[in-house]
Structure formats: C-alpha cells, structure tokens
C-alpha cells in the first residue's frame, strides 16, 4: 500500500486508518499491528509538530517475514534517531520525559533505519511477523 498525505493534524489519524486497513487486508497479528500503530503515530506526530514538511509519503509492505513501514517526508534534514536514547533506568520521579516517543519506536519495532534521500527524510520501521 502506498499513499501521500499532507503534513497537518490529520496525518497521524489518517495514516492509522490506512495502517489498520492494511493489517486487515494482510490478516496481520494484532500484536504486530499494536506495535506498528504506536510507532507510526509517534513518528508522524513528530513530523507534524517539528518538521517543515508539506507532505508525507507512506509505503506499507509485507516481505521477508516482516512488515516494513517507510515514511518519507519532504522537510528539512532531520534524523529522529540521532537523539540520545531515553534513560529508563533513571529515577522516574525526576527523569526527563523528552525522547519518549523515539524510545517507544525503538522498543516496539525490530529495526529503525533513517536516511536522507533526494525525496527527503526517510524512516523505515521493520516489525517481524510472529
């Protein structure tokens, strides 16, 4: 499945609907869908809140025993994976809450890959089936 959406407040919910449709079409495990739903939402909310992109192009694929979700936004260069990892071992009463979204993406997927392409920022999330 491929689609392009404008970068506005509807980008995360509209993409979640398409992802759910993709999951139904491919009879994907609810646990896989749960993880990808959260990971994709975190990334797209970052795009909405922080990027200069006008559009986001999404590709959803099942191949090689995994679901591949690739998001390409046409904003200025920004690598979300460059941020330092959240320190979940720190005191939870004083630990900074920044970086939580990327931490969730890392924990909920098997692989996250960022690269800058001619089309823009490309983030690929890979979640193994089963």
């Amino acid at each position: 499945m491929e689609f392009t959406l404008p970068n506005d407040a509807q980008l995360p919910p509209a993409s979640a609907e398409r992802l759910a449709e993709f999951g139904r079409d491919h009879a994907l495990d609810p646990r896989v869908m749960f993880a990808l739903d959260h990971a994709l939402n975190e990334h797209l909310q970052n795009v909405v809140d922080h990027s200069t992109a006008r559009t986001a192009f999404l590709e959803l694929q099942v191949r090689d025993g995994a679901v591949h979700v690739t998001v390409t936004d046409d904003g200025d260069t920004f690598d979300p994976l460059a941020a330092p990892p959240a320190d979940v071992a720190a005191d939870p009463d004083s630990r900074p809450v920044g970086g939580l979204g990327v931490h969730m993406m890392r924990k909920l997927t098997d692989q996250l890959l960022y690269r800058r392409t001619a089309a823009g920022n490309q983030l690929r999330m890979v979640k193994k089936l089963g």
Binding site: E42, Q45, V97, L100, G101, M104
Partner: peptide, 13 residues
C-alpha cells in the same frame, strides 16, 4: 487501548 508519548507526558507532568 492506545497511549501515545504525549499522553504519558500529561500523566507524568
């Protein structure tokens, strides 16, 4: 059935 990081930030803050 779904909780994003913004929701967790609200709870924690």
């Amino acid at each position: 059935n779904f909780l994003c990081s913004a929701g967790i930030r609200v709870l924690l803050q």
